[in-house]
Amino acid sequence: MSPEDVVLSIKRAARELFRKYGYNKTNMNQLARQAHISKATVYKFFPSKELILHEVLMDYIRENVEDILSLRVQGEDLASFLMSTILKVSRVTYTVCNEFVGWEFIRESTNAQEYLKTLSDDLEFLLLSSFIKNEIIASTVPEEKLTFLIKSSKNIVFSFAFTAVTEADVRKNFISFQKEILPYLVEATLA
């Protein structure tokens, strides 16, 4: 197996196990067994389970962001495009944290919170660089204003993800974010 194939096998196994059992309940022995390689080989490519999680989450988010942004600004104005893109990416991020990690673990673990900060920063960089690659956005909105929109949206979404108790709370918070907060953030970005 080539090194690329080994990495893909580990990430595929991790994605499946994290979704099925959650990050906290999956161990490196299970990952190695699922990937059909030795535990030492897993550690050769990923020194920690957290690094595997990061790769899996960023791959998933990157794929979804590329799909979302590939739709371009066609039938809608720039403000609507920015709002729908931010909302879709926020939902993807929430879903991926919910499915792969579990919010209970994130809320209760200091290490998970530190990791979430890293994920949040990487997501911010990914979104900003993706927006800048979009010709219409890059030519219309200054980078510092895009940074404002992304940081503000990301912080709001992560804060209600940490404080929501039920899925109904999450839905209510997303609706509030979509209708009451995001339009003002986009308006300030485009002003």
Results as ranks from 00 to 15, higher is better:
M1K: 08
P3R: 12
E4Y: 05
D5I: 10
V7K: 14
V7M: 10
L8E: 15
L8P: 00
I10T: 02
I10A: 02
R12L: 10
A13L: 08
A14K: 01
A14P: 02
L17S: 06
F18S: 06
R19D: 08
R19M: 09
K20V: 08
G22A: 06
N24V: 11
K25C: 10
T26S: 08
N29P: 00
Q30E: 14
Q30Y: 05
Q30I: 03
A32E: 04
R33H: 13
Q34M: 12
Q34R: 15
H36M: 08
A40L: 02
T41I: 02
T41M: 06
V42K: 03
Y43A: 07
K44L: 12
F45G: 00
K49A: 01
L51R: 07
L51Y: 06
L51M: 08
I52E: 01
L53F: 01
L53T: 02
E55I: 01
V56F: 00
L57C: 07
D59Y: 04
I61E: 10
V65T: 12
V65K: 08
E66P: 02
E66M: 11
I68F: 08
I68E: 10
L69E: 09
L69D: 05
S70H: 11
S70D: 09
L71W: 00
R72I: 01
Q74I: 12
G75W: 05
E76Q: 12
D77W: 06
D77I: 08
L78F: 02
L78Y: 05
A79P: 03
A79V: 07
M83S: 12
M83R: 15
S84E: 14
S84F: 07
V92H: 10
T93D: 12
T93S: 15
T93I: 13
Y94C: 00
Y94F: 10
Y94I: 06
V96N: 09
E99L: 04
I106S: 00
R107W: 01
E108S: 13
E108Y: 00
E108I: 01
A112S: 08
Q113F: 00
K117A: 13
T118K: 14
T118Q: 14
L119H: 08
D121C: 05
L123S: 10
E124W: 05
F125V: 15
S129A: 06
F131G: 03
F131D: 04
S139I: 03
S139Q: 11
T140Q: 11
V141C: 05
L146P: 07
T147D: 13
T147E: 14
T147M: 12
F148K: 04
L149I: 04
I150H: 07
I150A: 06
I150K: 03
K151N: 10
S152E: 06
S153G: 12
S153P: 04
K154N: 15
I156V: 11
I156D: 02
V157Y: 04
F158R: 09
S159E: 11
F160K: 03
F160L: 05
A164V: 01
A164Q: 03
V165I: 13
T166V: 01
D169E: 07
K172F: 11
K172T: 15
N173K: 12
I175V: 15
I175H: 14
S176P: 04
K179E: 13
L182P: 01
L182F: 03
Y184K: 15
L190C: 09
L190S: 11
A191E: 15
